[in-house]
């Protein structure tokens, strides 16, 4: 049976007991991947339990976005497997993953410049094969208020980020891959967006694999954290708050310090 088509309804969060042997929702196994001849990920293994928020941190170029692209299906790994809900999806095309509930919030606030906010929501739900409509009014993004019918091409960077997040959330995903949703936002707006996403996740039991540069903002929101360094998982913790003290972090990231 193809699990991808049989998704529990949104308002019944995925329970661990839905899965035999308490298997994780997502498991990335020893993935090697890159661009052309260049290998960026050199054997990454990580898993994500239902409802869990996992922060992925690391320096620029560490391979964070590459990891999310592998999970979303935009890059085929040279070796290793990606398992979602117990099913090997390594060779599943991107759009089938999206319909199965894997939502990827692309780095940099990607939107459709010629479509309005309403169009984005309609398109997002239709593409992911969700019925019904979402009205713009119910979305928790103040940046989008009053902009429901204007073309996204004329939006500011922050409005684009908000629209990208709103579009993704409206597709009622089963797993969110968020790639620096707060990049380019004013500090207050960034904190607000992060809080909104975290709240949405908690409310819906939505698991998030969360790449973020604003480490101090994301670690308190996460259940676990993973540090990527040159294509490898360099460290992992179930109490992300511990990493907040600057020295540990510098040490972990750059391999120097105390």
């Amino acid at each position: 049976m193809n699990v991808m088509n049989e998704r529990p309804a949104l308002n019944s969060p995925i329970q661990p007991e839905d899965f035999p042997e308490r298997s994780p929702l997502l498991r990335v196994e020893n993935v090697h991947a890159g661009y052309g001849k260049k290998e960026v990920l050199q054997g990454v293994t990580l898993s994500l339990a239902p409802g869990e928020i996992v922060a992925v941190i690391g320096a620029n170029g560490a391979g964070k976005s590459t990891l999310l692209k592998v999970v979303a299906g935009l890059i085929k790994p040279a070796a290793g497997r990606v398992i979602f809900r117990g099913e090997d999806i390594t060779n599943l095309p991107t759009y089938r993953r999206a319909r199965g509930g894997i939502a990827y919030l692309i780095q940099g606030g990607a939107v459709f410049p010629s479509l309005s906010v309403g169009d984005h929501l309609e398109l997002g739900r239709a593409a992911a094969r969700r019925g019904g409509r979402v009205s713009c009014g119910v979305l928790p993004f103040p940046a989008l208020e009053d902009r429901a019918s204007s073309a996204a091409g004329l939006f500011s960077g922050g409005q684009r980020q908000a629209l990208a997040s709103a579009t993704i959330l409206s597709t009622e995903p089963a797993l969110l891959l968020a790639d620096e949703p707060s990049a380019g936002l004013a500090p207050a707006a960034a904190a607000e967006l992060l809080a909104t996403l975290a709240a949405a996740s908690r409310e819906r039991g939505l698991p998030v694999l969360w790449v973020e540069q604003r480490v101090a903002d994301v670690l308190p929101l996460a259940d676990r954290a993973v540090l990527l360094r040159s294509g490898l998982v360099a460290a992992e913790t179930s109490s992300p708050g511990d990493w907040l003290d600057g020295e540990t972090l510098a040490h972990l990231t750059f391999g120097r310090g105390a």
Partner: peptide, 14 residues
């Protein structure tokens, strides 16, 4: 129009 604007985003949305 979505595919025209941004094919990668379209694909990622399903």
């Amino acid at each position: 129009r979505g595919v025209r604007d941004n094919p990668v985003l379209a694909e990622v949305l399903g």
